[in-house]
Design a protein around this nucleic acid. Structure first.
Lengths: 388, 388
DNA sequence: CCCTTGTGCGGGAACGTTCCCGCATCAATA
DNA sequence: TATTGATGCGGGAACGTTCCCGCACAAGGG
């Protein structure tokens, strides 16, 4: 396929009058004063050990077809006023020569690269583990999917990434998932005048836009569910993180408990990861004046492991303990009993975020209110009090 | 920070002789014959509803500093022969004006974008779920990390992605993880003359390079381990996939069984995902003439769920059944008993792959043998026969 | 038969860099 | 004092597109 440039040498039987009328048959322009061929262009690929075929450009197609680059460009892009014959001829020639437009040149001309960065704020000390979290894995995938559907590609950046790591990239915008309080990334990006799409913590900052999960509703929904199931001693396990979501979860929990006259019990998981979170769960299940009868786990942990931990400490689920995990982990479906999850709907968040991004970037939208994405409680056996 | 362009209007007290000597005080060059300002450049960002400040370019810094763009460029890049004073002046001016070089223009000039694509071949019907697999999550993260350390950014592409999704991107190369047999992606990329970095299945194809996991060694190591522990009826569960790794696993298993006079028992998991794989495990544990005494699970599944499945069918692990999972899932450490895993070392694979990529792209390396990355068996309690 | 209108195509500038030159200036040497 | 050489800086051409024009030429109307 893409039979390269065989018709290069001399095929005067085609368009005899036009092609090569000035004696410069070769592909490259004659070396005028100070012309030496680009630095990285032609000979860039395949250094020592073989003469790489230079990539075919628009002018090459034009010359071969006996047309101008303007005409060929219009033909391939479906623009301009061209006769059907010329258009077809240009297309055919381009196809035959295996022409692929240079994306960088297009971007330069267009003034944007249709490239967006994706970076998460928290978990910055292990900059790539976020992908191993089901929530971020889904958020990342959904962001990339939605963006691609809108014509934007996503560049993966490490959590807590620095200037130097994205400065050389032509990013039209950057999605900052779950920034920590006063996140450097956000500051740096805004200082560089790169539009930022993040959560509600950036609200009001010029150049920053937000979409967020309805954390208060999430907590309320879970605790209401516990209450409806008869639980009166719920305990919350939440990461010790300065993310807006986690702060708001704590607040919403406090508010709910106050409003319902329920003592507020909270355990903070010092670090992310199954080990620390499971230990926090064990603390929640064993310490305190009396044994809790419901557990809301907001930190990421494997549902089967949470279930194991509960059993290890003598809890039957859901008999002694109702369990709800904020999780996107699919294993929750396959445990015995299946675990009720509160989905933060990363797909919906990504969709809303990218829609907003496109609106800002392409329709010049200024400051909108942002959007609050609702959560979804998938009630399964682990949080339903069994009948007598 | 980055106090934009305040010194724009008129500050004649600085460099009085040089700046604006031709009366063209304004930022933009005087509209000569046919000059109207670029299409997307200045006014691109922020459409209706506010006049966006045009981005400061090299010439703007040069004019402000009373220098030429050549000089400023050299000053900022640390190249050329410049007096320390001029260099500092250029840098200071650039800093003051908040200059950020246009990445696209640089790329065009340099002839490459330092951008690589990352795509996985299998799981193409759910193009983004690969991120939810611990193996691919790690591989993706490690690829991005290593690439970034070498100066390349990674663009995330959907599994089984088509031409149209990457054609507009200035990709210097594409990493294709686990292509299926006769993968379209690989064909398309090679036809487009984009260097491909993949597994051994692309060996020998011009423009394609490989790095691979030592699948035969992996299987051998696990089965040897079982054998050493006294197991004589091992069973293999492997996905029904046309990936080179999975085909080779099957072959290696067959060879090992033949060589050791052990009957070959294999169960194929029809689809990926915890549900189907666990069902395949249950088939492996319940069907057949006699109950197996060791299980090698090559398909991705949550270790705790695998353990649960074994127990459901009356197996004590490791008493009745030795278990080894090919997995990067960290939960294997936290089960009771902890599960022995065979790590395919995605980090090492990524590192070797990117090293190879850089060698090819920057040092013009042609055809090298590729590299075979060894696996690592992390023996834990689940595969160690308990003492009497 | 001339003036307008429309069609089809090409010339050339611009997007913002980098880098190869050339041209001054100045010190050192013949 | 002239010639060389080094040093410091600027002009201008590329990189490969797209898009605004202008210019031929044909057709239509008065």
């Amino acid at each position: 396929m893409t039979e390269a440039s065989e018709h290069d040498g001399a095929t005067p039987e085609h368009h005899p009058a036009i092609a090569g009328h000035d004696g410069t048959e070769g592909r490259r322009r004659p070396p005028g004063p100070g012309a030496r061929g680009g630095p990285g262009g032609p000979a860039a690929r395949g250094g020592p050990g073989g003469q790489a075929v230079p990539r075919v450009r628009l002018v090459d197609v034009a010359r071969e077809a006996g047309l101008s680059k303007t005409t060929v460009s219009a033909a391939l892009n479906g623009t301009g006023r061209l006769s059907p014959e010329v258009r077809e001829k240009a297309r055919e020639t381009a196809r035959r020569m295996g022409y692929r437009p240079n994306a960088t040149a297009r971007q330069l001309r267009a003034g944007r690269a249709r490239l967006i960065g994706y970076v998460v704020g928290e978990l910055a000390d292990t900059p790539w583990t976020f992908l191993e979290s089901p929530y971020f894995a889904r958020l990342t995938g959904a962001t990339a999917a939605t963006a691609l559907a809108r014509g934007y590609a996503v560049v993966l950046l490490p959590a807590g990434s620095l200037q130097s790591e994205w400065a050389a990239l032509p990013l039209d915008a950057v999605v900052v998932a779950d920034p920590v309080a006063d996140d450097r990334i956000v500051e740096d990006l805004l200082a560089a005048r790169i539009p930022v799409f993040s959560d509600r913590s950036v609200e009001g900052r010029p150049g920053a836009h937000w979409v967020d999960v309805d954390a208060a509703a999430a907590v309320g929904q879970a605790l209401d569910h516990f209450h409806a199931q008869g639980a009166r001693r719920p305990v919350l396990v939440v990461p010790d993180s300065s993310t807006r979501f986690h702060r708001e979860v704590t607040q919403a929990h406090r508010a709910w408990c106050a409003a319902h006259g329920v003592p507020e019990r909270t355990v903070r998981a010092a670090e992310p990861g199954n080990g620390p979170v499971i230990r926090a769960v064990e603390t929640a299940l064993t310490s305190g004046p009396d044994r809790p009868d419901a557990l809301l786990l907001v930190a990421e942990a494997s549902p089967p492991l949470v279930l194991d931990a509960a059993r290890r400490h003598g809890y039957a689920v859901p008999g002694d303990l109702l369990l709800v995990c904020v999780s996107e982990d699919e294993t929750a479906l396959h445990t015995e009993p299946p675990v009720t999850t509160l989905s933060l709907r990363p797909d919906a968040v990504a969709e809303a975020g990218i829609a907003h991004l496109v609106a800002v970037l392409e329709r010049g939208l200024r400051e909108t209110g942002g959007a609050l994405v609702p959560v979804r409680l998938d009630v399964r056996a682990s949080s339903v009090r069994p009948g007598p």
